[in-house]
Amino acid sequence: MTAQWFGDRAVLVSTDGPDARERVAQTLEHQRESLGIDLLVRRGLHDVLVEAPAPDLRLLDAVREALARQSSEGTQRPVQPREHHIDVRYEGEDLASASAALGVEVTALVEAHRRQVWRVAMLGFAPGFGYLEPVGDPTLEWSALDRLAAPRARVPRGSVAVAAGMSAVYPQDMPGGWHLIGVSTVVLFDPERSAQPSLLAAGDLVRFVEVES
């Protein structure tokens, strides 16, 4: 684990994987107030970025001290993550080709996607777009599936997709290069819900619940 400057307003903490990233992110969120700076803690797949609103020379030391304090005091009790159940009709247009690429029947892919517990690794790409990573043992070799060779110019809102070891639901009509396996009615982002415009937050768990067409 290393913490280093990322420009003059942010510090990037690199870890060796999702579980370490989650521990670091929770540690830094936990200590955010004691860091004494108006900080934003953001996750990547393996990294945590701590961003200040303006250049601040104290930032790197503050982050390093917070991480050192945590390792000397031991890990705090892990935060109980929120869990979301997201409805899906498995009728995406790439369902057959994605199953074939993974070497399984369509029903096996559906079953594996439904049984998998997913965790929101990070949000990005579009407001409310969560990158979902498998938690625990993968129910299928998800990482064997690449992105599409030619991305679509427009993927409809609510599309449930898989690629590169992850799953996602498209919060709005937008371009996209993932395999579409289903459709959901979930509203992932609504700016009018000002207290919580994004349904998903990093660290949340997601389970997909199949509904019949």
Partner: peptide, 10 residues
């Protein structure tokens, strides 16, 4: 590399 957060000016 594994996708990570970026900032304005990166």
């Amino acid at each position: 590399r594994p996708s990570r957060p970026v900032v304005v000016g990166a």
